[in-house]
Amino acid sequence: MLLGDFGVGPAVVNALSRRMTAEVRYDGVRWAQEYARGAAVTPLTETGTTARNGTVITFWPDADIFGSAEVSADALEDRLRELAFLNPGLDLSLTDRRRPDEARSARLCFPGGTRDFVGFLDGHEAAHGPGDTVAFAHEDARMAGVMDLAFRWCDRPGERVRSFANSRATLSGTHVVGFHDGVAAAVSTYARESGLLAPMDPDIPADRVGEGLTAVVSVKLDRPEFLGAIRERLGNNEVRACVALAVREHLGRWLRAGSERAAAVVGRIVAGS
């Protein structure tokens, strides 16, 4: 699945496969073509009629290149699960029949999107946190895209933040920095209003809000800019301010609406800062 991250998925898969077949079903007709190590070995051929539309790509990894042509079902399921969480309209199925006595299948569909993703990451810990999940989607023309975030605090050490740009996992970037900026701003404002911070106390820094925090930060942009040797960081500067403002507004409303939950979350952050 990683082969498609750089926008040349089919061409790369084709070149790295000893065999690949493509079947296209469109407008009542089914078309097929076969390739070997990147080169077409059959012409595009009409193979019949169909009542469905769609494309089926079947490929056999080239063992001469990879050393082993074994595909990890676990890795594939993990990636498909991410895509299903990040795109709530998707309904994905994975079936592995390579070993008849150990056949496995999974259906991956999560209508709750990033909210469901946070619940999955927290697992049983979600039942022990001080509050509910904050989740929202927001379109902002200034960054030419949409943000989709969910986050919550649980009673556990450390921070767990998963970030994505155009459904591709990122290690860091302006969307993550903006998220932390927005959380710190909302928490600092609430702490002052509730008397947890004195008027002369400094604001809570962004690197102190993550204790017990689980978050999924996803943006989908018309023109994403990836940085780093493996393009693992999002670099769109305008995204930082857009995400920070939206997080500050949504988290601020959540904090003001739930006094007990807010006090538990902010009190823990203030005590740790």
Rank of each mutant, 00 (worst) to 15 (best):
residue 1 M to A: 14
residue 6 F to E: 13
residue 9 G to D: 02
residue 13 V to R: 01
residue 21 T to P: 00
residue 22 A to T: 11
residue 28 G to K: 09
residue 33 Q to M: 14
residue 33 Q to G: 03
residue 40 A to T: 05
residue 41 V to P: 12
residue 41 V to D: 12
residue 48 G to M: 11
residue 54 G to V: 08
residue 55 T to G: 02
residue 56 V to G: 03
residue 59 F to M: 11
residue 62 D to G: 08
residue 66 F to Q: 10
residue 66 F to K: 09
residue 69 A to D: 15
residue 69 A to I: 09
residue 70 E to V: 15
residue 72 S to T: 14
residue 73 A to F: 14
residue 78 D to G: 05
residue 83 L to D: 13
residue 86 L to K: 09
residue 89 G to I: 00
residue 102 E to P: 01
residue 102 E to N: 05
residue 106 A to W: 10
residue 108 L to M: 15
residue 112 G to A: 13
residue 123 G to Y: 12
residue 131 G to R: 14
residue 131 G to A: 15
residue 132 D to I: 01
residue 132 D to F: 08
residue 141 A to H: 11
residue 141 A to Q: 12
residue 143 M to A: 03
residue 143 M to Y: 03
residue 146 V to I: 07
residue 147 M to A: 02
residue 149 L to F: 11
residue 150 A to K: 08
residue 151 F to M: 13
residue 153 W to Q: 00
residue 154 C to N: 04
residue 159 E to T: 15
residue 163 S to M: 03
residue 166 N to Y: 02
residue 174 T to N: 04
residue 176 V to W: 09
residue 178 G to T: 03
residue 182 G to F: 02
residue 187 V to Y: 02
residue 193 E to W: 01
residue 197 L to Y: 04
residue 199 P to Q: 03
residue 203 D to K: 08
residue 206 A to I: 10
residue 208 R to V: 12
residue 218 S to F: 04
residue 218 S to M: 02
residue 220 K to D: 07
residue 231 R to G: 01
residue 234 L to P: 04
residue 235 G to F: 07
residue 248 R to S: 15
residue 251 L to W: 00
residue 252 G to E: 09
residue 252 G to I: 13
residue 255 L to M: 10
residue 262 A to L: 05
residue 272 G to W: 10
